[in-house]
Amino acid sequence: MGSSAEVIRPGSPSEATSAYGDGAGAAVLAGGTLLVPDLHFGRARPERVIMLGDAGLSYVTRSNGTVTIGATTPVDALVGESSPLGPCAASIGDNEIRAQATVGGNLCAPAGFGDLQGPLLALGATARSAGAGGERSESLEDFLTDRSGRLLLDVTYAEPAAGAFASLGRPHAHHYTVMAVSGVRTVDGATQLAVVGAGTVGSRLRSAEALAGDAEAAGDAAGDAVNPSDDPLASGWYRTRTLPALVKQVLSELEASA
């Protein structure tokens, strides 16, 4: 088995952008942890594969309290970041997978993956991407609602005053995440919450954010706001009833760090 797709190896971000074009028929190979087996088994049959290894998109830069993470930065480069991003990155896969998988690959992964969406949504990150109509920056939230035909270049967020992360994993070598909640207190004092595992992509928990002063009420509001479906990891019923506990845990951690 194998793929006969054309292989393109851009040597810079701008080459990557022009090679990607409008994304038609293209698959992006960054770490390859999802795409390589899909190509091998014919589950993905792109016309062209853009290998981003030399595209210069692996970087973490900081300036004036703003952090920018390039799309091909390996997940394990984030393990040392503060909560919620660091603990979330540390909970993904195993050490070999974390060293190979990339931030962009994780954010753009299909449902069931994409753990990093949680902390980066809570951080209110901005996504910069290329594709039809050229380069654009938008909130990660907007980016996640329609990722098709976009090449993620990097994400940017403001360092928070405090952060917290609570995850319901499984006792398995790879710790597939059933559900995880990320929480952030911004430098302006606002509380921002996001969940993964309650839908096909991560989402902000705005009704819970509005009640952040009352952890109990915020947890209940979060539970009311989601309608997760069943999958092999857990039932929607279980997830709906677990979410309030994770929200409360995150809020109490945020409280404790104040």
């Binding site: 292989v7 190979l29 770490g31 390859g32 942890t33 390589v36 087996p37 190509l39 091998h40 290998m51 290894g53 050490n95 070999e96 997978i97 060293a99 190979q100």
Partner: peptide, 18 residues
């Protein structure tokens, strides 16, 4: 898993061209 330049990597997830 094999060592690629000294680091352990899943060879089934690694495209040889990369």
């Amino acid at each position: 898993t094999v060592l690629i330049d000294g680091a352990p990597r899943r060879s089934c997830l690694t495209a040889v061209g990369s």
